[in-house]
Write a protein that binds this DNA or RNA. Sequence first.
RNA 1: GGUGGCGUAGCCAAGCGGUUAGGCAACGGUUUGCAAAACCGUCAUACGGUGGUUCGAAUCCACUCGCCACCUCCA
Length: 577
Amino acid sequence: MTVSVLKLKNSYTRQLEVFEPLQAGRVTMYSCGPTVYSFAHIGNFRSFLFADVLRRVLERNGYEVRHVMNITDVGHMTEDHLADASGEDKLAKAARELGSDPFKVAQHFERAFVEDAKALRLKIYRGGETDDPELHPRATGHIPEMLAMIQKLLERGYAYVVPTGEVYFSVAKFPEYGQLSGKNIEENEAGARVGVREEKKDPRDFALWKVDAKHLMQWDPHSDKGWDKADYGRYRELAPEGVDKTIKPGFPGWHIECSAMSRAHLGSTIDIHTGGEDNMFPHHECEIAQSYGAFGFTVPGPHGAPDEHHARKTFSRYWLHGRFLLVDNKKMAKREGNFYTARDLMDPVAAGRKDLAAKLEAAGFKGGRVDPLTLRYALISNQYTQQMNFGVDLLVQAKASVERIQRCYERLREIIGPGTDLDIAETASDKMIELVDKYEREFDDALNDNLNTPNALAAVFKAINEINAMTLGKAEAVEAMRLMDSFDEVLDVIDRRERSGILTKTEIEQRLALPLPEFDLLANAELDSAAVAGFVALRQAARKAKDFKRGDAIRDGLKHRGVMIEDVPQGVRWKLE
RNA sequence: GGUGGCGUAGCCAAGCGGUUAGGCAACGGUUUGCAAAACCGUCAUACGGUGGUUCGAAUCCACUCGCCACCUCCA
């Protein structure tokens, strides 16, 4: 049996490369995280989910993964922004509702993001990792590191201060600038679409520190006024010589935060850096330039032998970029009317999108709500290197797929039954053992091939087809369940709550002997398992009397209340929708 | 204008030189009082177009048509 090795497409070299971490057995990974000045949209989540799948695949390959995803909370909110708080703009609206404290706005949206991320089962927000600030660094908490890095760039001659008190990175000092994105910057018409700041020595130069009195978030590099005490102390610690006196109070530029935070929490050289394709230029290009300038790294070699390249110390050894998600074949944008946040889909009514709720309801989503696990599946169902065209059809298909996985899982659970010792002496057939082995390997091979999730899913469904066609004993079901659990380590789309069960024929007989409930399914009371059993017995009585009309009415009534009833050989299966 | 990518049966989506991808939908059958689920079968001798290379091409080459993204804050 050959074990496949993990291969990833490195955007920097544009080649599929065998993945080897710097340190054997351990992987450091940084993902450009959300900007918390509005609700994260499904495009954001596609990117975060691709990073999530990558992290899980790394873990499957036996690596201990340290995954950091930042929170960009250095908003670029200005007083103008607040003054202009009219219309639909959520940021402005939120700011007005929350007051003009940008920290509060950021906090509000960060909380919302964490909620969504948990619902979508981003592993970095599950369990103990959720509360580890080291794994979720906030930009506003790392101004000292950023200033220290800026200071270092000044000292090493990679940056300069202009009369306004702002600091720019000098791109001319870094000849490799543009290599990641493949942009020949010289040939681009500088400033063709953006006004060139005349203070810049070179139009390509980018800001490390900005000065703008209108901005609501400000830091004074020369005084502890307005600083969090701990942070100011930390800054002095990081830059003992103090910051260049000509730098004026302001806020960090757009690119410095990721360089500073990844270094702070993962060290100088990281294994993998992920982000959306748009991050390549200029964001990641600038990160490389800054880290090179500040820390004197070698840059990744251009298309050299992979081993030679990997041996070098660089800022990030592998760069992975997720391609954009489109909606209706267009880039998602509010003005196009094809913009969805994750919560718009998960609960459109609460998000104030009644039209969307109606559309989803019509497509078969109860209450117009898309289950988070369905959304998760949809967003990971094609390979991250491909543009994804999102739409209601995709969600419908994802829903059906998740249900198929879920049903297979539930069938196995029913066969195994409660309280079964999973180490039962009885052994599964060779056929089942081979099946598990075969599809687990296919699954891994697909994922190790640059996270080819469609192929991985093909393996899952082939396995389910075979498992469903087999008559299973307990030991076999245990084995099959192990396979499903294994798939779900990466997919994580199985709802493990007890949401279905079997009422056996004997149990129904026993229940029939007791007084039956009145046929009133319109009541508002919560349906508990006893109530469900009562109605199932009531229906059974009707069926026995050949009153199928009444029996079906009870089934429909239960369905209306979210409980599905299916007749199976052993009795009646109930299932919460 | 510069750069990158994509066009595969009704829809989504693998494959990247030679044996069934897979899913969804639809239709037929088994099962069921009826459903649902599950299973069996059909749609599937599909690869934007035109040339070329090859014993053999969805896969390589040339040209061509259409779509998308990046070059600006953006996942």
